[in-house]
């Protein structure tokens, strides 16, 4: 049956409610890109999400529409998702010892204790 709508434009399109048009074949929506946005000069680009696009130029265009509708942006990067190399969450133990390496932290160096002890010894 032809769709009758309150919207005259839809009625004029004479859409058949039984039609099977519009079926997508696999991957008709292009490659996946990851999007990085810089909101201000001097700050890091931040990952904000992903999108599908046929090429990097279109990806930039879509990224602007999709991720820069509010607030400030000064720069965008898009990267093919397939070009991003990632660690596995299963391997998260490779980061485990980082926090134990106290000698990397400024707080690990307490020279005042030693200086004061030294002064106390000089002038008892």
């Amino acid at each position: 049956m032809i769709i009758q709508s309150l919207d005259p434009r839809i009625s004029r399109a004479r859409l058949d409610d039984q039609s099977c048009d519009g079926q997508l074949s696999e991957h008709e929506h292009f490659e996946t890109f990851e999007v990085f946005q810089q909101v201000k000069r001097g700050t890091h680009h931040q990952h904000v999400g992903s999108l599908h696009a046929p090429n990097p130029e279109m990806a930039i265009l879509f990224a602007k529409e999709q991720y820069c509708r509010r607030g400030k942006s000064v720069n965008l990067w898009v990267v093919k998702t397939s070009d991003v190399f990632v660690t596995d969450y299963e391997d998260a133990d490779i980061f485990e010892t980082t926090e134990d390496k106290k000698y990397r932290d400024p707080e690990a160096y307490k020279v005042m204790d030693r200086i004061n002890a030294y002064k106390a010894r000089l002038n008892p």
Binding site: D16, S19, G22, L24, T32
Partner: peptide, 30 residues
């Protein structure tokens, strides 16, 4: 649903024209 179908159908030639034949789909990272 008919309007949604029409949108896919009428957008097909645009998607086809832009399609990069060698492209490989991967799912998003995160």
């Amino acid at each position: 649903l008919a309007v949604r179908r029409m949108a896919e159908e009428k957008g097909r030639w645009v998607r086809k024209a832009l399609m990069n034949q060698g492209a490989m789909y991967v799912s998003p990272l995160s």
